[in-house]
Amino acid sequence: MKAIIGLLCGTLFGIGLAMSGMTDTAKVLGFLDVSGDWVPDLAFVMGGAVCVTLVGFYLVLKSKAPLLGKKFLLPGTRIIDGRLLGGAAIFGIGWGVYGYCPGPALSALVYMEQNTGIFVVAMLVGMALTNRLTRA
């Protein structure tokens, strides 16, 4: 049952990404290019998604446990440190260099472009490398 929910949520998420244009690097880079020919699409995507999570999370978290689990597994850290800032800064640079963040990059694999495959492999290498270096 949990696996089916994973599949359904992933599929809904993927439809949302494709429909919203987030699998199109031109739209993402166009949004980030505020001094150029600005493409506002991403503001509507983020705005729409956050409106739903703001209300939805509030309602869901009123209950004690999720429907199919013992407890809600939420990130417990509340510290804002150099690691968070540095990581977010590096992530933003990578996002601006090519125009993909993790979700859209995976979804765009369906388009069978070589560059997307290269992006995803490089992303996994970056994650694994960072994990190894920061765990020591």
Partner: peptide
């Protein structure tokens, strides 16, 4: 881009 995104998210 992919490498930086991977490092940054981690």
């Amino acid at each position: 881009g992919g490498l930086l995104v991977g490092i940054g998210v981690k």
